[in-house]
Nucleic acid binder design. Structure first.
Lengths: 194, 194
DNA sequence: GTCTATACCGGGATAGAC
DNA sequence: GTCTATCCCGGTATAGAC
Protein backbone atom coordinates (compact mmCIF):
# COMPACT_ATOMS: atom_id res chain seq x y z
CA UNK A 1 0.00 0.00 0.00
CA UNK A 2 1.24 3.44 -0.86
CA UNK A 3 1.27 6.05 1.81
CA UNK A 4 -0.74 9.11 0.83
CA UNK A 5 0.97 12.44 1.33
CA UNK A 6 -1.18 15.52 1.13
CA UNK A 7 -4.86 16.20 1.48
CA UNK A 8 -6.36 12.74 1.48
CA UNK A 9 -9.79 14.05 2.38
CA UNK A 10 -9.97 16.15 -0.79
CA UNK A 11 -8.44 13.34 -2.83
CA UNK A 12 -11.16 10.96 -1.60
CA UNK A 13 -13.87 13.33 -2.78
CA UNK A 14 -12.17 13.73 -6.16
CA UNK A 15 -11.77 9.98 -6.63
CA UNK A 16 -15.42 9.51 -5.64
CA UNK A 17 -16.48 11.73 -8.54
CA UNK A 18 -14.33 9.71 -10.93
CA UNK A 19 -16.02 6.52 -9.79
CA UNK A 20 -19.48 8.05 -10.04
CA UNK A 21 -18.79 9.33 -13.55
CA UNK A 22 -17.43 5.98 -14.73
CA UNK A 23 -19.67 3.49 -12.97
CA UNK A 24 -22.54 5.43 -11.45
CA UNK A 25 -23.81 5.36 -7.89
CA UNK A 26 -23.87 1.57 -8.11
CA UNK A 27 -20.10 1.47 -8.61
CA UNK A 28 -19.35 3.78 -5.72
CA UNK A 29 -17.90 2.19 -2.59
CA UNK A 30 -15.44 3.27 0.06
CA UNK A 31 -13.21 0.34 -0.83
CA UNK A 32 -13.15 1.24 -4.53
CA UNK A 33 -12.30 4.87 -3.77
CA UNK A 34 -9.40 3.81 -1.56
CA UNK A 35 -8.19 1.35 -4.18
CA UNK A 36 -8.19 4.08 -6.83
CA UNK A 37 -5.97 6.26 -4.66
CA UNK A 38 -3.65 3.41 -3.75
CA UNK A 39 -4.34 3.66 -0.03
CA UNK A 40 -5.63 1.01 2.33
CA UNK A 41 -9.33 0.39 2.65
CA UNK A 42 -9.18 1.68 6.23
CA UNK A 43 -7.65 5.06 5.41
CA UNK A 44 -10.91 6.79 4.35
CA UNK A 45 -12.42 6.08 7.78
CA UNK A 46 -9.91 8.49 9.36
CA UNK A 47 -11.65 11.29 7.42
CA UNK A 48 -15.26 10.10 7.16
CA UNK A 49 -17.05 8.04 9.81
CA UNK A 50 -18.88 5.96 7.23
CA UNK A 51 -19.90 5.61 3.60
CA UNK A 52 -22.83 8.02 3.82
CA UNK A 53 -20.71 10.82 5.23
CA UNK A 54 -18.26 10.54 2.34
CA UNK A 55 -21.13 10.49 -0.12
CA UNK A 56 -22.64 13.46 1.69
CA UNK A 57 -19.46 15.46 1.23
CA UNK A 58 -19.49 14.56 -2.47
CA UNK A 59 -23.12 15.60 -2.64
CA UNK A 60 -22.33 19.04 -1.20
CA UNK A 61 -19.54 19.65 -3.70
CA UNK A 62 -21.80 18.48 -6.53
CA UNK A 63 -24.58 20.87 -5.52
CA UNK A 64 -22.11 23.75 -5.36
CA UNK A 65 -20.38 22.99 -8.66
CA UNK A 66 -23.62 22.22 -10.48
CA UNK A 67 -25.01 25.58 -9.40
CA UNK A 68 -21.89 27.29 -10.77
CA UNK A 69 -22.25 25.40 -14.06
CA UNK A 70 -25.93 26.38 -14.29
CA UNK A 71 -25.19 30.03 -13.68
CA UNK A 72 -22.39 30.04 -16.25
CA UNK A 73 -24.61 28.35 -18.84
CA UNK A 74 -27.49 30.77 -18.23
CA UNK A 75 -25.22 33.77 -18.58
CA UNK A 76 -23.69 32.36 -21.76
CA UNK A 77 -27.22 31.95 -23.18
CA UNK A 78 -27.88 35.69 -23.10
CA UNK A 79 -30.82 37.65 -21.72
CA UNK A 80 -33.93 35.88 -23.01
CA UNK A 81 -35.47 34.15 -19.95
CA UNK A 82 -36.52 31.11 -21.98
CA UNK A 83 -33.04 30.64 -23.41
CA UNK A 84 -31.52 31.03 -19.97
CA UNK A 85 -33.85 28.44 -18.44
CA UNK A 86 -33.38 26.03 -21.32
CA UNK A 87 -29.61 26.30 -20.84
CA UNK A 88 -30.07 24.70 -17.42
CA UNK A 89 -30.91 21.38 -19.06
CA UNK A 90 -27.73 21.48 -21.15
CA UNK A 91 -25.58 22.35 -18.15
CA UNK A 92 -27.13 19.50 -16.21
CA UNK A 93 -26.49 16.90 -18.90
CA UNK A 94 -22.89 18.06 -19.37
CA UNK A 95 -22.09 18.34 -15.68
CA UNK A 96 -23.58 14.98 -14.70
CA UNK A 97 -22.12 12.98 -17.59
CA UNK A 98 -18.72 14.51 -16.79
CA UNK A 99 -18.77 14.17 -12.99
CA UNK A 100 -21.53 11.72 -12.05
CA UNK A 101 -22.90 14.20 -9.51
CA UNK A 102 -26.55 14.43 -10.45
CA UNK A 103 -29.74 14.73 -8.43
CA UNK A 104 -29.66 11.01 -7.68
CA UNK A 105 -26.43 11.72 -5.76
CA UNK A 106 -27.34 15.14 -4.38
CA UNK A 107 -30.58 13.74 -2.99
CA UNK A 108 -29.36 10.20 -2.42
CA UNK A 109 -31.29 8.10 0.07
CA UNK A 110 -29.94 8.31 3.59
CA UNK A 111 -28.24 11.67 3.11
CA UNK A 112 -31.20 13.68 4.34
CA UNK A 113 -30.57 12.31 7.82
CA UNK A 114 -27.08 13.81 7.92
CA UNK A 115 -26.99 17.09 9.85
CA UNK A 116 -24.44 18.52 7.42
CA UNK A 117 -25.27 22.21 7.42
CA UNK A 118 -22.79 23.14 4.71
CA UNK A 119 -24.23 20.57 2.34
CA UNK A 120 -27.80 21.64 3.06
CA UNK A 121 -26.83 25.22 2.28
CA UNK A 122 -25.34 24.23 -1.09
CA UNK A 123 -28.43 22.29 -2.14
CA UNK A 124 -30.69 25.11 -0.96
CA UNK A 125 -28.68 27.64 -3.00
CA UNK A 126 -28.88 25.39 -6.05
CA UNK A 127 -32.66 25.12 -5.82
CA UNK A 128 -32.99 28.86 -5.27
CA UNK A 129 -30.95 29.57 -8.38
CA UNK A 130 -33.08 27.19 -10.43
CA UNK A 131 -36.30 28.75 -9.14
CA UNK A 132 -35.04 32.22 -10.01
CA UNK A 133 -34.37 31.16 -13.58
CA UNK A 134 -37.87 29.65 -13.81
CA UNK A 135 -39.64 32.62 -12.25
CA UNK A 136 -38.18 34.87 -14.94
CA UNK A 137 -40.08 32.81 -17.53
CA UNK A 138 -43.36 32.53 -15.71
CA UNK A 139 -43.66 34.93 -12.76
CA UNK A 140 -47.02 33.56 -11.66
CA UNK A 141 -47.80 31.44 -8.60
CA UNK A 142 -45.11 29.56 -6.72
CA UNK A 143 -46.60 26.13 -7.47
CA UNK A 144 -46.50 26.85 -11.20
CA UNK A 145 -42.88 28.01 -11.01
CA UNK A 146 -41.93 24.90 -9.05
CA UNK A 147 -43.80 22.83 -11.59
CA UNK A 148 -41.88 24.41 -14.46
CA UNK A 149 -38.42 23.91 -12.98
CA UNK A 150 -39.27 20.32 -12.09
CA UNK A 151 -40.31 19.72 -15.68
CA UNK A 152 -36.95 21.04 -16.87
CA UNK A 153 -35.11 18.92 -14.32
CA UNK A 154 -37.12 15.85 -15.26
CA UNK A 155 -36.27 16.08 -18.95
CA UNK A 156 -32.60 16.83 -18.25
CA UNK A 157 -32.31 14.04 -15.71
CA UNK A 158 -34.20 11.65 -17.97
CA UNK A 159 -31.91 12.28 -20.92
CA UNK A 160 -28.87 11.95 -18.66
CA UNK A 161 -29.85 8.64 -17.10
CA UNK A 162 -30.88 7.17 -20.45
CA UNK A 163 -27.51 8.26 -21.83
CA UNK A 164 -25.45 6.79 -19.00
CA UNK A 165 -27.55 3.61 -19.09
CA UNK A 166 -26.58 3.14 -22.73
CA UNK A 167 -30.06 3.63 -24.16
CA UNK A 168 -28.86 5.75 -27.06
CA UNK A 169 -26.85 4.38 -29.93
CA UNK A 170 -23.24 5.42 -30.40
CA UNK A 171 -24.13 7.74 -33.22
CA UNK A 172 -26.74 9.69 -31.28
CA UNK A 173 -25.18 9.14 -27.91
CA UNK A 174 -22.46 11.73 -27.36
CA UNK A 175 -22.94 13.92 -24.30
CA UNK A 176 -22.83 17.05 -26.47
CA UNK A 177 -25.52 15.71 -28.78
CA UNK A 178 -27.81 14.77 -25.90
CA UNK A 179 -27.15 18.07 -24.12
CA UNK A 180 -28.25 19.97 -27.22
CA UNK A 181 -31.42 17.92 -27.47
CA UNK A 182 -32.17 18.47 -23.79
CA UNK A 183 -31.81 22.22 -24.33
CA UNK A 184 -34.26 22.10 -27.23
CA UNK A 185 -36.81 20.09 -25.27
CA UNK A 186 -36.43 22.35 -22.24
CA UNK A 187 -36.94 25.38 -24.45
CA UNK A 188 -40.14 23.90 -25.82
CA UNK A 189 -41.43 23.23 -22.30
CA UNK A 190 -40.54 26.75 -21.20
CA UNK A 191 -42.22 28.30 -24.23
CA UNK A 192 -45.38 26.32 -23.58
CA UNK A 193 -45.61 27.89 -20.11
CA UNK A 194 -44.83 31.45 -21.10
CA UNK B 1 -37.07 -23.72 3.89
CA UNK B 2 -40.47 -24.21 2.39
CA UNK B 3 -40.83 -26.41 -0.62
CA UNK B 4 -42.39 -24.56 -3.54
CA UNK B 5 -45.24 -26.33 -5.26
CA UNK B 6 -46.31 -24.96 -8.59
CA UNK B 7 -44.68 -22.82 -11.22
CA UNK B 8 -41.58 -21.57 -9.46
CA UNK B 9 -40.23 -20.04 -12.65
CA UNK B 10 -43.22 -17.74 -12.98
CA UNK B 11 -43.21 -17.04 -9.25
CA UNK B 12 -39.56 -15.94 -9.47
CA UNK B 13 -40.40 -13.43 -12.18
CA UNK B 14 -43.35 -12.12 -10.17
CA UNK B 15 -41.28 -11.74 -7.00
CA UNK B 16 -38.56 -10.00 -9.02
CA UNK B 17 -41.08 -7.32 -10.06
CA UNK B 18 -42.10 -6.84 -6.43
CA UNK B 19 -38.49 -6.29 -5.44
CA UNK B 20 -37.87 -3.92 -8.33
CA UNK B 21 -40.96 -1.90 -7.46
CA UNK B 22 -40.06 -1.67 -3.78
CA UNK B 23 -36.28 -1.28 -3.86
CA UNK B 24 -35.29 -0.63 -7.45
CA UNK B 25 -32.70 -2.42 -9.55
CA UNK B 26 -30.25 -1.93 -6.69
CA UNK B 27 -32.38 -4.05 -4.38
CA UNK B 28 -32.75 -6.88 -6.88
CA UNK B 29 -30.76 -10.04 -6.21
CA UNK B 30 -31.32 -13.72 -6.78
CA UNK B 31 -30.98 -14.33 -3.05
CA UNK B 32 -33.59 -11.71 -2.17
CA UNK B 33 -36.05 -13.12 -4.71
CA UNK B 34 -35.63 -16.60 -3.27
CA UNK B 35 -36.02 -15.29 0.28
CA UNK B 36 -39.26 -13.55 -0.64
CA UNK B 37 -40.71 -16.80 -1.96
CA UNK B 38 -39.48 -18.80 1.02
CA UNK B 39 -37.33 -21.11 -1.08
CA UNK B 40 -33.62 -21.79 -0.79
CA UNK B 41 -31.11 -19.51 -2.47
CA UNK B 42 -30.14 -22.35 -4.78
CA UNK B 43 -33.65 -23.01 -6.11
CA UNK B 44 -33.70 -20.20 -8.71
CA UNK B 45 -30.64 -21.66 -10.39
CA UNK B 46 -32.69 -24.68 -11.46
CA UNK B 47 -34.71 -22.31 -13.68
CA UNK B 48 -32.21 -19.61 -14.63
CA UNK B 49 -28.48 -20.22 -15.15
CA UNK B 50 -27.52 -16.93 -13.55
CA UNK B 51 -28.73 -13.54 -12.33
CA UNK B 52 -28.71 -11.92 -15.77
CA UNK B 53 -30.93 -14.61 -17.27
CA UNK B 54 -33.54 -14.07 -14.57
CA UNK B 55 -33.34 -10.34 -15.07
CA UNK B 56 -33.59 -10.91 -18.81
CA UNK B 57 -36.82 -12.84 -18.40
CA UNK B 58 -38.19 -10.02 -16.23
CA UNK B 59 -37.11 -7.56 -18.89
CA UNK B 60 -39.03 -9.42 -21.57
CA UNK B 61 -42.23 -9.48 -19.51
CA UNK B 62 -41.80 -5.79 -18.71
CA UNK B 63 -41.44 -4.87 -22.38
CA UNK B 64 -44.54 -6.88 -23.24
CA UNK B 65 -46.70 -5.52 -20.41
CA UNK B 66 -45.48 -1.96 -20.84
CA UNK B 67 -46.45 -2.09 -24.51
CA UNK B 68 -49.93 -3.28 -23.55
CA UNK B 69 -50.24 -0.46 -20.99
CA UNK B 70 -49.12 2.08 -23.60
CA UNK B 71 -51.63 0.86 -26.17
CA UNK B 72 -54.45 0.90 -23.63
CA UNK B 73 -53.57 4.43 -22.52
CA UNK B 74 -53.38 5.71 -26.11
CA UNK B 75 -56.74 4.21 -26.96
CA UNK B 76 -58.29 5.66 -23.80
CA UNK B 77 -56.96 9.08 -24.82
CA UNK B 78 -59.07 9.18 -27.96
CA UNK B 79 -58.13 9.95 -31.55
CA UNK B 80 -56.02 13.13 -31.38
CA UNK B 81 -52.44 12.02 -32.18
CA UNK B 82 -50.94 14.47 -29.67
CA UNK B 83 -53.19 13.23 -26.87
CA UNK B 84 -52.39 9.64 -27.76
CA UNK B 85 -48.65 10.27 -27.72
CA UNK B 86 -48.81 12.28 -24.50
CA UNK B 87 -50.68 9.39 -22.86
CA UNK B 88 -47.55 7.29 -23.33
CA UNK B 89 -45.77 9.32 -20.66
CA UNK B 90 -48.58 8.75 -18.17
CA UNK B 91 -48.68 5.03 -18.87
CA UNK B 92 -44.92 4.84 -18.40
CA UNK B 93 -44.96 6.61 -15.02
CA UNK B 94 -47.84 4.47 -13.76
CA UNK B 95 -46.47 1.16 -15.02
CA UNK B 96 -42.93 1.71 -13.76
CA UNK B 97 -43.87 3.02 -10.33
CA UNK B 98 -46.22 0.07 -9.93
CA UNK B 99 -43.94 -2.70 -11.26
CA UNK B 100 -40.37 -1.36 -11.31
CA UNK B 101 -39.97 -2.53 -14.92
CA UNK B 102 -38.75 0.60 -16.69
CA UNK B 103 -36.23 1.18 -19.44
CA UNK B 104 -33.38 0.87 -16.95
CA UNK B 105 -34.48 -2.74 -16.51
CA UNK B 106 -35.57 -3.43 -20.09
CA UNK B 107 -32.22 -2.18 -21.37
CA UNK B 108 -30.18 -3.14 -18.30
CA UNK B 109 -26.44 -3.55 -18.80
CA UNK B 110 -25.38 -7.04 -19.71
CA UNK B 111 -28.75 -8.08 -21.08
CA UNK B 112 -27.92 -7.17 -24.66
CA UNK B 113 -25.47 -10.06 -24.73
CA UNK B 114 -28.22 -12.57 -24.00
CA UNK B 115 -29.43 -14.32 -27.16
CA UNK B 116 -33.00 -14.34 -25.85
CA UNK B 117 -35.06 -14.09 -29.01
CA UNK B 118 -38.40 -13.81 -27.26
CA UNK B 119 -37.18 -10.91 -25.14
CA UNK B 120 -35.69 -9.14 -28.19
CA UNK B 121 -39.02 -9.48 -29.95
CA UNK B 122 -40.92 -7.92 -27.06
CA UNK B 123 -38.59 -4.92 -26.87
CA UNK B 124 -38.70 -4.50 -30.64
CA UNK B 125 -42.50 -4.53 -30.60
CA UNK B 126 -42.53 -1.96 -27.81
CA UNK B 127 -40.27 0.41 -29.74
CA UNK B 128 -42.32 -0.08 -32.91
CA UNK B 129 -45.52 0.82 -31.06
CA UNK B 130 -43.91 3.94 -29.62
CA UNK B 131 -42.61 4.99 -33.02
CA UNK B 132 -46.05 4.54 -34.56
CA UNK B 133 -47.60 6.83 -31.98
CA UNK B 134 -44.90 9.43 -32.64
CA UNK B 135 -45.13 9.24 -36.41
CA UNK B 136 -48.84 10.07 -36.21
CA UNK B 137 -47.86 13.40 -34.66
CA UNK B 138 -45.02 14.28 -36.94
CA UNK B 139 -44.87 12.11 -40.09
CA UNK B 140 -41.62 13.63 -41.33
CA UNK B 141 -38.17 12.05 -41.41
CA UNK B 142 -37.30 9.02 -39.34
CA UNK B 143 -34.63 10.85 -37.31
CA UNK B 144 -37.18 13.48 -36.26
CA UNK B 145 -39.72 10.84 -35.27
CA UNK B 146 -37.08 9.00 -33.24
CA UNK B 147 -36.09 12.29 -31.69
CA UNK B 148 -39.67 13.00 -30.66
CA UNK B 149 -40.33 9.65 -29.03
CA UNK B 150 -37.01 9.83 -27.19
CA UNK B 151 -38.01 13.24 -25.84
CA UNK B 152 -41.26 11.77 -24.54
CA UNK B 153 -39.41 8.82 -23.02
CA UNK B 154 -36.82 11.10 -21.43
CA UNK B 155 -39.40 13.25 -19.66
CA UNK B 156 -41.42 10.22 -18.53
CA UNK B 157 -38.33 8.35 -17.34
CA UNK B 158 -36.97 11.49 -15.66
CA UNK B 159 -40.16 12.08 -13.72
CA UNK B 160 -40.28 8.41 -12.74
CA UNK B 161 -36.74 8.17 -11.45
CA UNK B 162 -37.01 11.46 -9.56
CA UNK B 163 -40.22 10.15 -7.99
CA UNK B 164 -38.78 6.79 -6.95
CA UNK B 165 -35.61 8.52 -5.69
CA UNK B 166 -37.75 10.60 -3.34
CA UNK B 167 -37.06 13.94 -4.99
CA UNK B 168 -40.66 15.10 -4.75
CA UNK B 169 -42.34 15.98 -1.47
CA UNK B 170 -45.13 13.84 -0.13
CA UNK B 171 -47.75 16.34 -1.20
CA UNK B 172 -46.64 16.51 -4.82
CA UNK B 173 -45.26 13.00 -4.93
CA UNK B 174 -48.11 10.59 -5.61
CA UNK B 175 -47.70 8.48 -8.72
CA UNK B 176 -50.99 9.74 -10.10
CA UNK B 177 -49.96 13.36 -9.62
CA UNK B 178 -46.61 12.83 -11.32
CA UNK B 179 -48.20 10.83 -14.12
CA UNK B 180 -50.58 13.71 -14.87
CA UNK B 181 -47.69 16.16 -14.96
CA UNK B 182 -45.70 13.89 -17.26
CA UNK B 183 -48.68 13.76 -19.61
CA UNK B 184 -48.91 17.55 -19.66
CA UNK B 185 -45.18 17.96 -20.35
CA UNK B 186 -45.27 15.29 -23.04
CA UNK B 187 -48.22 17.03 -24.66
CA UNK B 188 -46.32 20.30 -24.74
CA UNK B 189 -43.34 18.59 -26.35
CA UNK B 190 -45.54 16.91 -28.93
CA UNK B 191 -47.34 20.15 -29.75
CA UNK B 192 -44.04 21.94 -30.24
CA UNK B 193 -43.13 19.39 -32.92
CA UNK B 194 -46.43 19.33 -34.71
C1' DG C 1 -2.45 9.61 9.65
C1' DT C 2 -1.86 5.52 7.52
C1' DC C 3 -0.87 0.66 7.69
C1' DT C 4 -2.02 -4.59 8.29
C1' DA C 5 -5.11 -7.73 9.79
C1' DT C 6 -9.47 -9.22 10.90
C1' DA C 7 -14.59 -9.94 11.80
C1' DC C 8 -18.83 -9.76 9.72
C1' DC C 9 -22.27 -9.57 6.12
C1' DG C 10 -24.75 -10.33 1.74
C1' DG C 11 -24.79 -12.00 -2.82
C1' DG C 12 -23.34 -15.37 -6.75
C1' DA C 13 -22.84 -19.81 -7.72
C1' DT C 14 -21.97 -25.03 -7.27
C1' DA C 15 -21.97 -30.03 -5.22
C1' DG C 16 -24.33 -33.56 -3.53
C1' DA C 17 -28.33 -35.44 -0.68
C1' DC C 18 -33.24 -36.51 -1.03
C1' DG D 1 -37.14 -30.01 -8.38
C1' DT D 2 -35.80 -28.44 -4.17
C1' DC D 3 -32.93 -28.81 -0.14
C1' DT D 4 -28.58 -28.20 2.82
C1' DA D 5 -24.05 -27.05 2.90
C1' DT D 6 -20.27 -24.75 1.19
C1' DC D 7 -16.95 -21.67 -1.29
C1' DC D 8 -15.62 -17.38 -3.10
C1' DC D 9 -15.85 -12.52 -3.57
C1' DG D 10 -16.40 -7.67 -2.41
C1' DG D 11 -17.91 -4.26 0.73
C1' DT D 12 -18.33 -2.06 5.66
C1' DA D 13 -16.18 -1.24 9.60
C1' DT D 14 -12.96 -1.81 13.67
C1' DA D 15 -8.54 -2.93 16.44
C1' DG D 16 -4.05 -2.33 17.09
C1' DA D 17 0.78 -1.61 15.20
C1' DC D 18 3.87 2.01 13.42
Amino acid sequence: MGYHHGDLRAALIGASFELLAEHGLHGFSVAAVARRLGVSSAAPYRHFPDRDHLLGAVSGVAAHDLRAAVIAAADAAGTDPVDRLAAVAGAYVRYVTRTGGGFHVIFAAGLSELPDEERREHTRALMTTLLELAVAVEPSSYPEVLNLIQEIIAVAHGYTTLLTDGFFTLHNGSAEHIAARAVRAAGDLANARR
